[in-house]
Design a binder for these strands. Structure first.
Length: 790
DNA sequence: GAGTTTGAAACT
DNA sequence: CAGTTTCAAACTC
C-alpha cells in the first residue's frame, strides 16, 4: 500500500475531516418527495434510513467559454436553472455549469459582477436576496471569465467567512422555496435546483451548482437540491498547455430515477467530505486538492473515494486527464466556510493564482498521486492513486452507507460519442473529461447509468489491468462496467446495505450490477487490486460470507465478528426476502440453498428481484431494527411484529430475536415480550444463566489450554537455554498421558458423584494443578540431581 | 434429521 | 388494506 507522501499529506487540511460531530441522521426530505409518506413513526431510528444517495457531480470546466457555451457540446451543460453565482468583480474566472440529464435545457448563463448588484437585502435568516441586477450581459452565456449572477430575486445564502474573511455565499435559485417544477422533455421531469456556493475571495471562483437531474429515464426527479460546493485546485502545468481544473460538486437529494448520464467532468480532483442542503441538517462537502493532471494522452481518469465513517460523509478525489492541448487553469483557494452547522472546507495546494494558459512549465511527472482522504479527523483513509497507471479507476464510496462504487474508466478515444441530449462534443478536453463525471450517474441509478455514461467514458476493456487503491483500514468497493440493464432502476437509497456496483458477468463494459458490500469486501484488499477482466472478477473471486453491515442496530464490528448463518432456501432462489442472505444484501455463500440466484452469475435476475422488492417496499433492505439515539434500549422494530402464538418470546418473533422488547407498533397477540413480563424475565434469567455457564466453560477450557501451552513452551526451550529453567524435557509422552489419566479420573469421579459441571471443571483443574506441581517438582529434582544437561 | 410450528413475505 | 398463500427459520421430537 502506498503511503501518502508527506508532501501530499501536508496539503490535506486537518479540519476537512473534522466533521464527525455533524449530525447526519436527518431524513432528507427529498427522499420521500416522490414516495408516499413513511408510515414508520420514527424513521430516524433506523440509521440506514437516513441515507440518501449522494450524488456528487464533478464537473470541471476547462474554461468559462467552454462551459458556458457548452449547450451543444459540453458534457456539463448549463441548465435552465440558476446558474452561477457571484464573485467580486473580475474575480470569477470561470463559470459554473450544471449537469442535467436533459441537455436540451441548457440555457444561457447570466453573468453579472457582484458590484453591480444594486440592492441586497439581508434577512435575518442569512439570506441575501438580490433584488436587482444592473445588467445582465452576455445573455448568451458565452462570456468567459465573467461572474454570473442570477437576475433579480436571486437568493444568496451567506455561508460564512472563509479563513481569510471573505464571505462565502450560496446562490439559490429563484425556485428555491418551492418544489421543483416539471421541466424538460420526456421523462426527465425534474428541474434542477441549484445552490451555488461562492467565495468572493479574489481568487478563482468556486462555484457549486446543485445537482440537476442527472438521470433522465423514466424516473421522475422531483426535487433536487444542491448541497454544497467546493473547489480546490492545484496548479498543474502541462507541457502541452495550460489546463483548467474546475470542480463542481452537485448533489441531488432525490434518489429516484435516473437514467441518463449526465455529468461529465474533464478533470476533477477534490475532496468531498459531506454535504448538506440549506434546509436540512448540516452536511459538509469538502473537496480536496486536485492533483496534477497527467499528460497522458490516453486520457486516464481516476476517481478515488475513500470510505468514511458517517454515511453522510463523502470523500471524493478524482483526477482526470485532459488533452494535452486543453488549457489548464489552476485555482488555489483556501477556504473554510462555516455555514450554519455546515462546514465547508477547502484546502489548497500550493497557492497559485489562476493558471495561466500556455504555461511552458514542463510536467514530466507522468504519474501524480491522487490523494484521497476519507477518514474523519484522521488520515486513515488516504489513498493514492498513481495516475500514470493504465487503467483508471473511479471509486466512490459512501461510508457507512450502502454504496461504495468504483468504476474503472479509461481514457476516451476518438470514438467517444456525444453526450446525452444528442449533442456532439467536439472539444477534446471536454470529451476526455467525461469519464470522470460518472459519479452522479452512478449514484443515481445503479443499472442504468452505464449505458449513456459509458458512451461518455469509453471504459477500457477489462482485459487490461485495473488498479484500485485501497486503504488498509477500510475495504474498498468496486464498481465496474456491467451489463446494461436499462429496465432496472432500483432506488439506491433502498438498496441492500453495502450494495456495490459491479460488472455484469460476461457482459460488456457497460452497465452495473449490484453487489453486496460484503461480497466486495472479501475481495482481496491489497494496496492495489488488479482486475484482469470482468469475467475473472465475477467468477474467480471467492465469495466469503460477510457479516452484515450495521444491521439491526449492531455495529459493523459486531456484525463482522459474527458469521452469518447459511440459508436453506429451496424455492425462492434466494431472490426474495425470505432469504436472509438476500434480505441482508449479501450473496449466498456456503449456504445450503437450492437453485440459488443470489450470486454474481445471476446478477440480472438479482437486480430484478431487488427492484421488485423495492417496488413492494421501498425500505425492504433497510434494517428493521432501528437504533435509538440513547443506545440499545431505544432500539425497536421499525414495523413491529405480528406474532400470535409465540407470545413474542421465541425467535419467531423478530423483536425477541433482536433482543428487544415489543413496542406499541407491534400488532402481536398475547405478547409477553415487555419490560415487566415475568415470562420474559424468566427467560432472560435462564438465558443469562446459560450464557454464564458457557462463558465459564469457555474460560476453563481456555485456561487449561493456556496452562498446557505455557508448560510446553517453558519446558522445551529449557533443554537448550538452561538458565533458571528446568533442564529436562520432562513433559514426555508418558507424563502427558499420566496427566490426562489423572484428569480423566477426576472427571469420572465428579461424574459419578453427580457434581455440577462447574464443580467438575473446578475439580479437574485442581487435579491438573496438582499434576503440574508434581511434574515441576520432579523436574526440579532432576535438575538438582543432574546439573549437567543429561 | 424429519416433521411441526411460526410469522414474515408475497400474493390476491 | 385485509385475507390467503408461500416460504424458510425456529422449534420439537
Amino acid at each position: 500500500m502506498d503511503v501518502v507522501s508527506p508532501e501530499l499529506n501536508s496539503l490535506l487540511p486537518d479540519e476537512i475531516m473534522d466533521t464527525e460531530a455533524i449530525a447526519m441522521e436527518e431524513e432528507l426530505p427529498v427522499e420521500h418527495l416522490a414516495a408516499p409518506p413513511q408510515s414508520e413513526p420514527e424513521p430516524p431510528q433506523v440509521p440506514m434510513e437516513t441515507e440518501v444517495p449522494e450524488i456528487v457531480s464533478l464537473c470541471p470546466a476547462t474554461t468559462s467559454m467552454q462551459m458556458s457555451s457548452a449547450s451543444t457540446d459540453a458534457q456539463c451543460s448549463t441548465s435552465s436553472g440558476t446558474q452561477l453565482l457571484l464573485a467580486p468583480s473580475g474575480l470569477i474566472t470561470s463559470t459554473t455549469m450544471t449537469t442535467t440529464t436533459s441537455a436540451k435545457t441548457t440555457g444561457p448563463a447570466v453573468t453579472q459582477n457582484l458590484p453591480k448588484i444594486s440592492r441586497v437585502t439581508v434577512p435575518a435568516n442569512h439570506q441575501l436576496i438580490i433584488n436587482k441586477v444592473a445588467s445582465a450581459p452576455a445573455a448568451d452565456g458565452k462570456s468567459p471569465g465573467t461572474a454570473v449572477l442570477k437576475p433579480e430575486g436571486q437568493k444568496l445564502l451567506v455561508a460564512g467567512l472563509s479563513k481569510t474573511g471573505q464571505p462565502i455565499m450560496l446562490a439559490l435559485p429563484h425556485t428555491w422555496n418551492k418544489p421543483a417544477t416539471t421541466q424538460g422533455t420526456g421523462d426527465a421531469k425534474a428541474q434542477p435546483t441549484q445552490i451555488k456556493m461562492l467565495t468572493t475571495v479574489g481568487k478563482p471562483v468556486i462555484a457549486v451548482s446543485s445537482a440537476s437531474q442527472l438521470m433522465g429515464g423514466s424516473s421522475t426527479l422531483q426535487a433536487q437540491q444542491l448541497k454544497t460546493l467546493q473547489i480546490t485546485k492545484k496548479p498543474t502545468v502541462s507541457t502541452a498547455g495550460p489546463m483548467i481544473t474546475k470542480l463542481i460538486i452537485t448533489k441531488a437529494l432525490n434518489n429516484k430515477g435516473l437514467s441518463s448520464p449526465a455529468s461529465v467532468a474533464p478533470v476533477v480532483t477534490g475532496r468531498v467530505v459531506t454535504q448538506s442542503t440549506p434546509v436540512t441538517p448540516p452536511r459538509t462537502i469538502t473537496i480536496g486538492e486536485t492533483s496534477t493532471v497527467p499528460q497522458n494522452t490516453s486520457g486516464n481518469s481516476k476517481v478515488a473515494i475513500s470510505p468514511l465513517k458517517s454515511p453522510s460523509k463523502l470523500t471524493v478525489v478524482s483526477v482526470a486527464s485532459q488533452s494535452p492541448n486543453s488549457p489548464q487553469k489552476s485555482v488555489t483557494l483556501p477556504l473554510n466556510v462555516a455555514l450554519g452547522q455546515q462546514i465547508l472546507t477547502v484546502q489548497q495546494s500550493a497557492a497559485t493564482s489562476p493558471a495561466k494558459a500556455g504555461t511552458s512549465q514542463p510536467n514530466t511527472q507522468t504519474v501524480k498521486p491522487v490523494q484521497t482522504v476519507g477518514g474523519v479527523g484522521t488520515s486513515q483513509f488516504k489513498t493514492i492513486i498513481p495516475l500514470g497507471t493504465p487503467p483508471n479507476v473511479q471509486q466512490i464510496q459512501v461510508p457507512g452507507s450502502r454504496f461504495h462504487y468504483v468504476r474503472l474508466v479509461t481514457a476516451t478515444t476518438g470514438s467517444t460519442t456525444a453526450q446525452s441530449g444528442g449533442s456532439t462534443n467536439t472539444n477534446p478536453s471536454i470529451q476526455q473529461a467525461k469519464p470522470v463525471m460518472m459519479n452522479a450517474a452512478v449514484r443515481m441509478s445503479v443499472p442504468i447509468v452505464p449505458a449513456q455514461s459509458i458512451k461518455q467514458v469509453v471504459p477500457k476493456p477489462f482485459t487490461s489491468a485495473a488498479q484500485v487503491v485501497t486503504t488498509s483500514q477500510t475495504p474498498q468497493r468496486l464498481i465496474m462496467p456491467a451489463t446494461h440493464l436499462p429496465q432496472i432502476q432500483p432506488n439506491l437509497t433502498s438498496l441492500p446495505p453495502g450494495t456495490v456496483l459491479a460488472p455484469a458477468h460476461g457482459s460488456g463494459n457497460m452497465g452495473y450490477a449490484v453487489l453486496p458490500a460484503p461480497y466486495v469486501t472479501q475481495i482481496p484488499q491489497p494496496a492495489f487490486v488488479t482486475l484482469t477482466s470482468s469475467s475473472t472478477f465475477s467468477t474467480a473471486t471467492p465469495i466469503q460470507t460477510q457479516a452484515r453491515l450495521s444491521l439491526n442496530g449492531l455495529s459493523t464490528s459486531e456484525a463482522t465478528s459474527r458469521p452469518r448463518k447459511p440459508c436453506n432456501c429451496t424455492r425462492s432462489q434466494c431472490l426474495k426476502l425470505y432469504c436472509d442472505c438476500f434480505a441482508n444484501g449479501e450473496f449466498c455463500n456456503n449456504c445450503n440453498c437450492v437453485n440459488c440466484f443470489n450470486n454474481l452469475d445471476h446478477e440480472s435476475e438479482r437486480l430484478k428481484a431487488i427492484k421488485a422488492c423495492l417496488d413492494r417496499n421501498p425500505v425492504a433492505f433497510k434494517p428493521k431494527i432501528g437504533k435509538g439515539k440513547q443506545g440499545e434500549s431505544d432500539r425497536r422494530h421499525s414495523k413491529g411484529c405480528n406474532c400470535k402464538k409465540s407470545g413474542c418470546l421465541k425467535n419467531y418473533c423478530e423483536c425477541y430475536e433482536a433482543k428487544i422488547m415489543c413496542s406499541s407498533i407491534c400488532k402481536c397477540m398475547g405478547c409477553k415480550n415487555f419490560e415487566e413480563s415475568p415470562e420474559r424475565k424468566t427467560l432472560m434469567h435462564l438465558a443469562d444463566a446459560a450464557e454464564v455457564r458457557v462463558q465459564q466453560q469457555t474460560a476453563a477450557k481456555t485456561k487449561l489450554s493456556s496452562q498446557i501451552s505455557d508448560l510446553l513452551t517453558r519446558t522445551t526451550p529449557a533443554v537448550t537455554s538452561g538458565g533458571g529453567k528446568l533442564p529436562y524435557t520432562f513433559v514426555t509422552k508418558e507424563v502427558a498421558e499420566a496427566t490426562c489419566d489423572c484428569l480423566l479420573e477426576q472427571a469420572e469421579q465428579a461424574e459419578l458423584t453427580t457434581q455440577p459441571q462447574a464443580v467438575a471443571e473446578r475439580l479437574i483443574l485442581e487435579e491438573f494443578g496438582r499434576c503440574l506441581r508434581r511434574i515441576i517438582s520432579f523436574a526440579g529434582k532432576a535438575k538438582t540431581d543432574c546439573p549437567i544437561n543429561c
